[in-house]
């Protein structure tokens, strides 16, 4: 990845403060704080219902949140305080902010009526407004990067789950986001297809891509992450480097959680 200008004492790339999120009366995020710097790889772990996917989805406003702030590259995401009042951003600004993050989904969510190449070029053409030849060149570069250049004219229905997920990652990353979000990207895959997707993500991490992941692949999380964040009942229970966190959990909850998972 190309280096952008690093201002002195650069603010965190992503900063989440006091994040609250409720579905009606049910509070699923109860005040979450998280900071990420450029190049960080942070993985959210925790049992289902702990709020990790919700947290991830708040970052690109696929979920609305009711309290707190999310700042990406110093810009408020979703809401701003205007003279003491919390105001939701206009849709156009929200769309622009969403384009600053890339997201890969559990169910891939490729556009079934578009080829692999068209899936990747859509955002480049309509959001980045690149000329067609540049968009195609860039899309081909990323399809090549995920090992699927020769499948560029295949439709999602003609690709395996692992291949679809790799196209979905190429689609997200071709937009040159400052942060990539991965939401349980291997959970819907057959076991033998998990490896090909994880190795793509690992490659991106090694190239310095800033990533926030939710995964149940603990070995992968261990290997790829700078920070592991353990979430429990809508709060961050514990966080730290993978080695410390996995080998010497401080909280009883985390110890209990780790005891029940296989590596």
């Amino acid at each position: 990845m190309t280096q952008t200008q690093t201002a002195p004492a650069a603010p965190a790339l992503l900063s989440i403060e006091g994040l609250h999120k409720s579905y009606g009366p049910v509070e699923v995020l109860k005040g979450v704080d998280l900071k990420m710097n450029k190049g960080n790889v942070v993985t959210l772990i925790g049992s289902s219902g702990s709020g990790k996917t919700t947290l991830l989805r708040c970052v690109n406003l696929l979920e609305e949140f009711q309290g707190g702030h999310i700042r990406l590259e110093g810009q408020d995401i979703g809401y701003s305080d205007v003279s003491g009042k919390r105001v939701r951003h206009p849709e156009k600004l929200i769309a622009r902010h969403r384009a600053m993050t890339g997201m890969a989904f559990q169910q891939f969510n490729l556009f079934p009526h578009l080829t692999a190449l068209q899936n990747v070029t859509l955002g480049l053409l309509k959001v980045k407004k690149l000329p067609k030849d540049q968009a195609i060149a860039l899309a081909e570069k990323w399809l090549d990067r995920v090992g699927l250049l020769e499948r560029r004219n295949h439709f999602p229905g003609q690709l395996s789950g692992g291949q679809q997920q790799r196209v979905a990652i190429a689609r997200a990353i071709a937009m040159n986001p400052s942060l990539m979000l991965f939401d349980e990207v291997t959970s819907a895959l057959d076991p033998e297809l998990v490896g090909e997707v994880l190795s793509v993500i690992k490659g991106l991490a090694e190239e310095g891509m800033t990533m926030l992941l939710v995964t149940h692949e603990m070995r992968f999380a261990y290997e790829v992450s700078d920070q592991i964040v353990f979430m429990n009942q809508g709060r961050i229970e514990e966080q730290g480097p993978p080695k410390a966190l996995f080998e010497q959990p401080k909280s009883a909850r985390l110890a209990e959680f780790l005891k029940n998972i296989r590596f």
């Binding site: 690109n60 769309a95 969403r98 997201m103 955002g123």
Partner: peptide, 12 residues
């Protein structure tokens, strides 16, 4: 997920 994928790449 289709609409979400559209949103995620920044489509209005």
């Amino acid at each position: 997920g289709q609409l979400e994928a559209g949103k995620a790449i920044g489509l209005t």
